[in-house]
């Protein structure tokens, strides 16, 4: 169950060639330096970029299959997608944005309350801070009750404190959801904090050496040990 994907795509500098899977209710964190192909991978999952070859399956639904000529458009994948930087609709208020594709207005209100946006519901995106815009983008993605949630470095442009608050909030809310989440980041600590599985991507492929370090036993580690491991991994990178 969940999401499985085999993706191949030739880019200008390298060929993306990855296999990934993410069970329902879990988070897959894709980590890697800028330009390693992480965003292209998540865009392929969304249907915004077409792979040259491969197959994307969510539960029993085929999103993409090059062999069978199947390629569902993004509209039919029922996604929540949070872009790297703000892509809210400038003509709508924060509430209008959050409720844009939502069916349940009560859910929108609850999400806006949870992310501390209730007071700002009537403001336009240009009237609020970057952190508030990104919180709204997360609300917008979650409010449509997606079957797959994709986040592309959603908090990378924010300061450290705001970023920590938002990822804590996201993790808390995702604990109650059953959809898989794919989270792209270049921050090792963030990837280890948010991801049940972490997939290091370098030049379009999974970096095996990195993979071995990351998949080292983590069970039973306390918060301090996890932080120390994150620092070691970051330094090793």
């Amino acid at each position: 169950m969940g999401l499985t994907a085999v993706l191949k795509k030739k880019t200008k500098f390298f060929t993306i060639d990855v296999e990934l899977s993410c069970p329902d209710g879990q988070t897959l964190a894709l980590i890697g330096p800028s330009g390693s192909g992480k965003t292209t991978i998540i865009r392929m999952l969304a249907g915004l970029v077409t792979p040259d070859e491969g197959r994307i399956v969510y539960r029993d639904r085929l999103f993409f299959d090059s062999a069978r000529g199947v390629n569902l458009p993004p509209q039919k994948r029922k996604l929540g997608y949070v872009f790297q930087d703000y892509s809210l609709f400038p003509h709508l208020t924060l509430y209008g944005n959050a409720a844009f594709a939502a069916r349940d207005r009560g859910e929108v209100d609850a999400l806006m309350g949870f992310f501390g946006l209730a007071e700002l519901r009537d403001r336009k995106p240009h009237q609020v801070s970057g952190g508030e815009r990104q919180r709204c983008a997360v609300c917008q993605a979650l409010a449509r009750n997606p079957q797959l949630l994709l986040l592309d470095e959603p908090f990378s442009a924010l300061d450290v404190v705001t970023r920590r608050i938002l990822r804590n909030g996201l993790k808390k809310i995702m604990g109650k959801r059953t959809c898989p989440m794919v989270y792209v980041t270049h921050d090792v600590t963030e990837a280890l904090f948010i991801g049940n599985t972490v997939l290091p991507i370098v030049a379009g492929s999974v970096d095996q050496e990195w993979m071995e370090r990351i998949t080292a036993p983590a069970a039973g580690m306390d918060a301090g040990a996890k932080a120390a491991r994150a620092t070691r991994l970051a330094l090793a990178y």
Binding site: G47, L48, K78, F89, F100
Partner: peptide, 10 residues
């Protein structure tokens, strides 16, 4: 990105 944003929102 606004167009893409609309597409992924269905």
């Amino acid at each position: 990105r606004l167009k893409e944003s609309a597409y992924v929102l269905g």
